[in-house]
Design a binder for these strands. Structure first.
Lengths: 352, 352
DNA sequence: TGATGGTGATTAATCGTTTAATCAAGCTAG
DNA sequence: CTAGCTTGATTAAACGATTAATCACCATCA
């Protein structure tokens, strides 16, 4: 039944060269004591035959598959491509493969997804939980990427500081009356971002929070956010926790004939693919996914290799750097007002 | 060095029950001839011990890893989450895992990505090429998801028919003067979509094609598409090959004070996550990723299992159904004109 | 009664690699 | 001249599952 695997094996190289399989293994791995001349001959033969070691046999012997699992509880997250790419890149740079597991938002399926990974014998798991999911102890090292205020997070972007960045930017443009747009107050990430924003509201300014999920439960799915009314009542800046919501706000304002950034500024988060492409281009805050991925993978691999030494790191791993700063990408949706808001006169700042 | 793998092995179950390992294996696999009573006892013991078979040992013996590779040459494609999710779902429903490999757009790295997968001993590969990349013969079955007009495509959405859908929709709303927006004429997918559109331009109507990549090479990256001018010259409908470009067009028009859909309609492709959320909600054409993934995976698994029988299917696999129809999602960016365009009077259709 | 056949289990080989233990020389030193 | 060390290679035992071949046993039938 089992068809003979294609490609040569260690043993085939060995017999072809009249040496033992162990010698070939050692030569290729650079271990043991082999004469330089023999190593060359073995290398040459291996190349010539196009030798590819059997990962199954190696895994069976060593106990390590050199494969990591990536659990994305919310795969529809538009940030996912960036994250997956960064994780895969960091992992493969260290010689590891990445097995994906989608849990389709449900917590029950998340456990199932983790089990699928365990059955495939992954050496460790990277998980990016959405909303505070409980992380159970699996028998392997685990890296969690969420938010700094999540108890067991390994590493993440500094969402709080990102929020401060946006608010400082808007305040510097003269804004005083803000609407902060979030989706779900249960999300640590969103709370951090909004918390950071609130912490930098200028003296005398005011900020109202709009939770979209609550709004939609009250007024129906995809119903207008009635932002024009907020502008009437004095709001001049809208800061959303995601470019998704910023885009929603921007198009709603534009559609209502409110000039952006002339009469209202809009800012988002995550710097999604299209953010720079729209008109006006969206001001956003970007997270350094590459660095975050690198730190997470490093911590994970460290634990995996330490595990070898009876250290038995079986829980959530931790890294030296636990939060990575975000950077503001100021574009065209934020600016000083060019039209009077309300009773007051135009705020400080040169006219556009 | 190699730390003892956690969890029980077949042999441990066997000795605990005073039977042979082979019996346990057969019982759990439902093969061979084992008394019902013994099967129950073995199952019970396996559960009790939390037995998880070693995939490495199994793979070594059987020659199959039950892992598939997924190659995404353009991971930044915003459609990626949907596709990855669908592929992973279809694969895991059949007991297969999915290893991702990103090739970061470069053809050279695509080959490297495929090699990484081969080194990991995947049983087969699903590849979604961007722009006509040459598919080399690897030693394993391969499923290609691209476009029906790509020579070796296994299965894909019927992009041509999708294009027809959009155009028929716009024509039914009374439009006659179209701007078709694409990015790169070298893409089979985009060409199919645009070709489908052109094939359904109503008699007497005209359609101009705007290739963004060419436009940007001439006028600079992220420069305005000057769509307002096109409206001045009589265009009333903009149909893009992607929601990304449709969004770009929509925001540019809105920003120029052109009412959508009052003075111009806009339609896109792919029904991305935010398409329904913006104002006005974007009309789009959706592909049935779940069905496409299912067909691709089935064809692949079929080839893999046939391979067992010395059939030796080593190239691109083919399926019975090679193209899956797309569906139109009509929303608010498309409609009849409510403002006069040019010298002519308002086209037929009831006023909004 | 002895040949035949079905049942329920065991034996043993095998997949390809790693690695600890061993061994045969050759060389140096006492 | 031999004990001891180094060098360069070999042996053999795992790792944990699958599976073809075998076997002991009992029942059936001629």
């Amino acid at each position: 039944m089992a068809n003979p695997r294609p490609g040569p094996t260690l043993t085939m190289i060995a017999t072809a060269l009249n040496v033992s399989a162990a010698t070939v293994s050692n030569a290729l791995a650079g271990k043991g004591r082999i004469s330089a001349e023999l190593i060359d001959r073995i290398r040459a033969k291996a190349d010539e035959l196009g030798y590819v070691p059997s990962s199954a046999a190696r895994a069976l012997r060593t106990g390590h598959t050199r494969v990591l699992g990536l659990v994305l509880p919310d795969i529809s997250n538009p940030l996912f491509p960036q994250i997956a790419q960064a994780i895969e890149y960091a992992a493969s740079a260290s010689g590891y493969g990445v097995l994906i597991a989608d849990s389709r938002g449900s917590v029950a399926m998340q456990t199932e997804a983790i089990n699928r990974l365990i059955e495939r014998d992954v050496d460790g798991i990277v998980i990016i939980p959405r909303l505070g999911t409980r992380i159970v102890d699996i028998g392997r090292p685990l890296a969690v990427i969420d938010s700094p205020s999540t108890p067991n997070s390994t590493v993440s972007a500094d969402h709080w500081q990102g929020g401060q960045l946006v608010m400082e930017h808007l305040a510097a443009l003269g804004h005083q009356n803000f609407v902060l747009i979030g989706n779900n107050p249960a999300s640590n990430v969103q709370n951090d971002r909004i918390g950071g924003m609130k912490s930098r509201v200028p003296a005398g300014g005011k900020a109202e929070i709009l939770w979209i999920e609550q709004h939609e439960q009250a007024h129906g799915k995809a119903s207008p956010l009635r932002l024009a009314e907020k502008v009437e009542r004095g709001a001049t800046a809208f800061a959303a926790v995601s470019d998704l919501h910023a885009l929603r706000a921007l198009t709603e304002l534009q559609n209502a004939g409110i000039a952006v950034p002339g009469r209202a500024s809009v800012a988002g988060f995550d710097d999604l693919a299209w953010s720079a492409m729209i008109t006006p281009a969206l001001t956003s805050v970007r997270m350094d996914v590459a660095t975050i991925a690198r730190i997470a993978i490093d911590a994970l691999l460290c634990a995996i290799e330490a595990d070898t030494a009876a250290d038995a790191t079986r829980g959530v791993v931790s890294a030296e750097t636990t939060s990575v700063p975000m950077t503001l990408v100021a574009r065209q949706t934020t600016g000083v007002l060019t039209a009077p808001t309300h009773p007051e006169k135009t705020p400080a700042g040169e006219p556009a």
